[in-house]
Design a protein around this nucleic acid. Structure first.
Lengths: 355, 355
DNA sequence: CTGTTAGCGCTTTCAT
DNA sequence: ATGAAAGCGCTAACAG
C-alpha cells in the first residue's frame, strides 16, 4: 500500500531534519548540496510519496485560479467545460481554491484581448485557457511564462506554447468518425456535404480545418466515387441560412448526408424538419441541449463528443496537482476519447458518475 | 468556496464541544437529544461539510476491502474492472487501504461459493462483488448485511438486495444499441442473427437476456420485415463452434449481421476471417484485447462498452466515502454510459485520463 | 452523556 | 543552512 514511510523517517535515514526534507521536496532552496544528495538518495530508495491529505491540511494557502474561456451559454459546449471545472472545484473543495472567470466572446477578438489582459493583471496562481484566438493566446501565455504562472489548455492547443497541461481530441480522428457515421447512416451512392457556419470574426476554426481534413480523407479512402461538397450557412441570420440550405439541397438532390463541423447541426436539422425534408442524415459535434433535442426527434443521426466536462475537470485537477505537489513530470498533452452518441445510448451519456 | 466553517465553530454555535459534534456527524451515539437537535440545526444552517483531508489524516485506521469477482484474465472484461479498482486504490493511496481479491471461475458455481465464503470469513470493512451466481450472491449479501459490512455491485445487480452502491448499464439499451449498429453496418434487407455462446454452467446470462430483449425489440420496431435468428457456438470447443457457425451461415445466406451478446465476438470474427467469408458484420460487447484486434483488422464492425474500469474505480471510491464519511445518502444505483467504439474512435478510447 | 486532549503527517516560522 | 516546535482541522481515547 506504500505510504508507510513518512518525512520524519526520510529525515532520520538521511541524517537531517524534517524541515530540510520538506525544503528539498519542494525545491524551496536553502539546502546544502550534501543534504540534498543524501536526502534525494533516500527518497529514491524508499520510493517516498508524501501524503496528499496531511499536506493539504497544513498548507493553508488559498489558490486563485483564473479561467479564460468563451462565454458559457447554458446547454452549449463551454457550459459543459465549465461544469467540469465546477465539479472539480467541488471535488477538491477541501483545498481552498477561488475561481475567477474571465469570459470572452469567441467571435470578438477585442473581448478576448480584454479578458486575457484582465487575467494577466490579476496574477492568479494558475490559469485555464480555452484558446480561440491564436495571437491573443500567445501573448497571454508569454506573460504567464514570464510570471511563472502555470496554465492549461482545454478544447484545443496552440502550437509552440508550453502549457502545464493540455486537453483536446484528435480533430482529424473526430472528422473521420463523423464521416464514418454519416456514411453508415446514408443509403449507398449518396453524396455528402459539409455545411460550414460562416463566422463573423476571423475565428480560429483550427479545429474545423482538421475535422474537414479527416472527413474528406475518410471518403477519399473509402468511397472515392461519392462526392463531398461544401456549403455555408449563417448562425446569426436564420432566414439567410434557410434559403442557402434549401437551395443547396434542391440543387444537389444526390446529397443524403450532411456533416456540420461544429455544434450547430441543430440549425440545419431544424430547417429540414420544419420544411418537411426527409431522408437526409445529419451528423455534427457536441452534445448541446439543442443537439440532444434533435437526436431525440430523429433529425440528427449522431453526434461526436469530446468530453468537454472531463476536460474542464482534469484541467483543474492537473493544475492543482501541479501547484500542490510540483508534479510537472506527468504527461502534459492529453488526447481525449472521441464519443459517439445516438438515440440509443443518449439517455445514458454522462461524463461523470458520482454525486 | 464553502469550507470555512469548522467543527469548533459548529460546536461553539451550538453550545457544545467539538467531540459532541463529531459524534453526531458520525452517528457514533452517546448524545442527548437536545445536543443532537441543536447541532443539527447549526449544521444545516451553515451547510457544514467537513474537511476530507484533515479527517483522513487523523483517521489512522486501515481499511480492508475484499473483492469477489470472476478471475481477471489479462485483456478481458474483468481485468478492466480490476484496473479500475487498482486505479482507485492508487488515487486514494493516502488512505490506508488493503485489498484482497477472491477470484472465482464464473462458470463454476462451486468456486464461486468457495470464494464468497472466504470473503465472509475474512470480515473485511467493505466488499466489491461481481455478482454472477444469484443464489450465492444472495447468501453472501445476507451474511454481510448481518455483519453490517457494506458492499457494492459491479457489472450487474441482483434484485432484492441492498448494496451500498451498484454500477451497471441498462442492458436493454445496450441491446438496442447493438441492434442499431448492426442495422447501420448491414445492407438493406439483411437478416440478422444472435449468436450465443453455450455456457458450461447454468451461469447467469441475466445480462444477455436483457440484451437480447432490447435487440429484438429494436428490430421489431424498426424493420419487422427482417428476420432475427439465433444460433449457438461453444467457447471451449473451437472446432464445434466453427462447424456450427459456418453451417448456420451457409444455411442462412440472407444473414448479413451477427450480434454476440457478450465479449466473444472475436471468436466468430476469427472464424469468418479465417474461412474468407466476407460481407458479414459483427457487433459485440466489451473492448477486450481480442476485440480490439478484430476492430483493427476490420472483422468486427463495432463494439458496445460499459465502462468496466470506471465501474471498478467508482466502486472503490464510493465504498471509501461510505466508510470514511457515512455518505450513504447518495444515489446508490448508477447507470453507466453505453459507449460505442469502432475503428475510427478506437485509438482514443480511454476511461481514464490522468497518470 | 460530554468536554478535554493528544495526536495524525506535513509545512512553516523562528531561532540558532 | 538547519533543527525545533507550533499548528492545520479532525478523531478517539479518557476522564469525569
Amino acid at each position: 500500500m506504500a505510504r508507510q514511510v513518512k518525512i520524519k523517517d526520510i529525515a532520520q535515514m538521511a541524517g537531517v531534519s524534517a524541515g530540510t526534507v520538506d525544503r528539498i521536496l519542494h525545491n524551496r532552496g536553502n539546502v546544502s548540496e550534501a543534504s540534498r544528495t543524501a536526502v534525494e538518495r533516500v527518497l529514491a530508495e524508499t520510493g517516498y510519496r508524501y501524503n496528499i491529505h496531511t499536506s493539504a491540511v497544513s498548507l493553508r494557502k488559498e489558490y486563485r485560479i483564473a479561467i479564460a474561456i468563451p462565454t458559457a451559454v447554458k446547454g452549449e459546449y463551454w457550459d459543459s467545460v465549465q461544469s467540469g471545472i465546477e465539479h472539480a472545484l467541488d471535488e477538491y473543495s477541501d483545498i481552498r481554491i477561488s475561481r475567477e472567470y474571465a469570459y470572452y466572446n469567441q467571435f470578438d477578438i477585442y473581448s478576448c484581448r480584454a479578458s486575457f489582459e484582465s487575467i494577466a493583471e490579476g496574477s492568479p496562481n494558475a490559469v485555464i485557457i480555452g484558446p480561440t484566438f491564436v495571437s491573443e493566446t500567445r501573448s497571454l501565455c508569454g506573460e504567464l511564462d514570464r510570471k511563472g504562472i502555470p496554465y492549461a489548455f482545454v478544447d484545443s492547443a496552440i502550437e509552440g506554447l508550453n502549457p502545464a497541461l493540455s486537453f483536446s481530441c484528435d480533430q482529424k480522428a473526430c472528422g473521420r468518425t463523423v464521416a464514418r457515421l454519416l456514411h453508415l447512416t446514408c443509403p449507398e451512392n449518396s453524396d455528402f456535404a459539409i455545411l460550414s457556419s460562416m463566422r463573423t470574426g476571423n475565428g480560429r476554426s483550427n479545429n474545423s480545418l482538421a475535422r474537414k481534413e479527416g472527413f474528406t480523407e475518410y471518403f477519399m479512402e473509402t468511397c472515392p466515387g461519392n462526392a463531398v461538397m461544401e456549403a455555408k450557412f449563417s448562425v446569426p441570420d436564420p432566414e439567410e441560412s434557410e434559403r442557402n440550405v434549401l437551395n443547396f439541397i434542391r440543387e444537389n438532390p444526390s446529397v443524403k448526408g450532411i456533416a456540420v463541423m461544429n455544434s450547430r447541426g441543430y440549425i440545419i436539422a431544424d430547417i429540414l424538419k420544419r420544411t418537411g425534408m426527409e431522408g437526409i442524415s445529419i451528423v455534427c459535434f457536441d452534445l448541446t441541449s439543442n443537439n440532444v433535442r434533435c437526436i431525440r426527434n430523429g433529425s440528427i443521426s449522431a453526434v461526436v463528443c469530446q468530453r468537454p466536462e472531463l476536460q474542464g475537470f482534469h484541467a483543474v485537477r492537473g493544475l492543482l496537482r501541479y501547484l500542490l505537489y510540483n508534479q510537472e513530470d506527468e504527461r502534459k498533452t492529453h488526447s481525449m476519447p472521441v464519443d459517439i452518441v445516438m438515440a440509443e445510448n443518449l439517455p445514458y451519456y454522462k461524463e461523470f458518475l458520482p454525486e
